[in-house]
Amino acid sequence: MTQVRVVVTLKPSLLDAQGRVVQDALHSLGYTEVGRVRIGKYLELDLNEEANGDVAARVREMCERLLANPVIEDYHFEVIS
């Protein structure tokens, strides 16, 4: 079985409001070495036996169309066979 692991994050130019809250919380716990915190989404896609050919191209299309919003988010993924 092929598995795809996708990570989606807000573009660096955008304020990640949740990330900032976590950063503040880490600081208040004494982890002052922590700089910027970004929160993203992690998706695991299990591909069935139909998945052959250019898996990466298909996954890129999934990311562009649905899994990420390219207006505000970046994504990257890895294909694990």
């Binding site: 955008l14 304020l15 409001a17 949740q18 207006v71 505000i72």
Partner: peptide, 11 residues
């Protein structure tokens, strides 16, 4: 429409 709507700065 252009752009997007993301989480309020206040969360």
């Amino acid at each position: 429409l252009p752009g997007a709507l993301v989480r309020n700065t206040s969360c």
